[in-house]
Simulated assay, not measured.
Amino acid sequence: MEGTVLDAAWEQPAECGYPAFSIEGVAARARTSTPVLYRRWSWNSCVPPFVGTGTSSP
Rank of each mutant, 00 (worst) to 15 (best):
M1P: 01
S56A: 07
C16Q: 14
T4L: 11
L37K: 00
G52V: 10
W10Y: 14
S42T: 10
A20H: 04
Y38N: 05
F50E: 15
V26M: 04
W10R: 14
Y38I: 06
P48G: 08
R40E: 10
E11S: 12
P19G: 14
V51P: 00
A27D: 07
N44L: 13
S22N: 10
S22K: 09
W10M: 13
R39K: 14
C46K: 04
A20F: 01
G25A: 14
P48W: 05
Y38R: 15
S33I: 08
W10F: 09
S56C: 05
G3E: 11
T32G: 03
C46L: 12
V51W: 14
P35A: 07
T34Y: 03
W43Q: 12
R40A: 13
F50W: 15
Y18E: 04
C16K: 14
G3S: 10
G52R: 12
V26H: 01
E24R: 07
I23V: 15
R31Q: 15
E24M: 06
E15P: 00
S42A: 13
A8K: 04
A30S: 06
A28G: 00
R40I: 04
A9T: 09
A30R: 02
C46G: 02
G17Q: 03
P13C: 12
S45R: 08
A30F: 03
R39G: 04
T34P: 08
S33H: 11
R31W: 00
R40W: 15
N44Y: 11
C46M: 14
F21C: 04
W10S: 02
V51L: 13
P35K: 05
R39T: 08
E2N: 04
G25M: 06
R31V: 14
T53M: 12
F50I: 12
D7F: 05
T34D: 01
V36I: 07
T53R: 13
W41T: 09
A20Q: 11
R39A: 15
E15F: 07
R40Q: 08
T32I: 08
L37Q: 00
A30I: 06
R39W: 10
T4N: 06
